[in-house]
Simulated scan of single mutants.
Amino acid sequence: MDPSRRSVIGASLFSAALAIPGWQDVVGRTEAVRSGGAQRIGTAEVDSVVAVTDRLSDLDDQFGGRYARPMAAAFLVNVVAPYLKASAPEDVRRAMMSAASFLCYLTGWMAVDEGLHGIAQQYYVKGLELAGASHDHLTYCHIMRGMSVRSVDLRHGPTAVKWADAASEASPAAGPRMAAFMSGQQAHSYADAGERHNALSSIRKTEVSMSRADSQARTFGGYSAATLAYHTAQVRYELGDVAGSVESLQLHFRLREPTNESHRSGMRFTSMLAERQLALGHLDEACATWHEVLDDYPSIQSGQVDKHVREMARLIRPHTRNPTARDLGERARLVAPALFDARRFNPGVPTG
């Protein structure tokens, strides 16, 4: 069941063109949320939505968007939508809309992982609407940052810059970790758009913010030293420093705390590392790194990971007379047979 078919995201405050909505344009406003009906909710219902959202986020991180999004969509339609229409004190209503806003964002994030960008856009827009209705400025900025991440993934650099800048400019007075959360994405977006000076300036700003952050705090966005290393890797890569990007990705994995990081992102970043090792001509290292991805592939249901594994197949195809590359290809064909044409891994079989 998909909420896009129901009223939770069916009535949107914004057009599909997605002009950046200003905070004052959304605060206190919504078209989809109306009180009424026999049901009445309290803080217990709000707490339950927050707790389930946290659990859905964990499932998404561990198993991927194709696994988690159907559950998130069903929960949004069958549980959260009735709560949004229930009677409640004003503070409870706002808290419920805030919780629903973040759930819409999370469900959109899962849709991006599946490659369903149109559906993701609908969730994000509804999340912005609910964030404004609940006066939740932090989630509003978080969602706009997520829209920038989505645009970078689609290689729409100028659009990514637009969203990242809007998120940063609209964010309320923030501590250093949230400032890093915003400026790190700005740096990646600027680099993707080819704005070298702005990219380098933003990554330096991120480094300064992180140096001022409490290293033990897991605050808004969970931005960490490992995340900074990832953003540095992306900036270096987009600006043409492939070797530097590999160095920064390796630092990311040294700093990464497995208990606090997404399994799916680990697989994606490992794939990126392999791709860039190969770009440097390090075939054996790249194959060893790709084997790490294949170790975990059966446990994930992620369109983004599938895309990386298909890219692996494309990149090693010219090297399949090399025993190391051929072994990798043969293993990939066994681990993920649906993704490959087996002939491409056998240099003795004509490919037409």
Rank of each mutant, 00 (worst) to 15 (best):
R6S: 13
I9G: 13
A11T: 15
S12Q: 15
A17I: 05
L18M: 10
P21K: 00
G22F: 02
Q24I: 08
A32I: 07
R34L: 11
G36R: 07
G36W: 12
A38G: 12
R40F: 00
G42M: 01
D47R: 10
D47M: 09
S57T: 10
D60S: 01
D60K: 02
Y67I: 01
A68M: 05
A72M: 11
N78C: 00
P82H: 05
S87F: 00
F102S: 14
L106Y: 05
E114K: 09
L116N: 15
A120P: 04
Y124C: 05
K126T: 09
E129P: 03
G132T: 01
L138E: 15
C141R: 03
I143K: 10
V149E: 14
R150C: 08
V152R: 14
R155C: 12
P158E: 09
P158M: 04
A167M: 09
S171Q: 14
P176L: 01
A180K: 05
E195F: 09
N198H: 11
A199R: 08
V208T: 14
S211Y: 09
S215H: 13
G221T: 03
H231R: 11
H231W: 01
R236I: 01
G240C: 06
G244S: 08
S262F: 07
C287G: 10
T289D: 12
S302P: 03
S302L: 12
G303I: 01
V305K: 03
D306S: 08
H308V: 01
A313P: 07
P318E: 11
P318Y: 00
D327W: 02
L328S: 04
L334M: 13
A336H: 08
P337M: 12
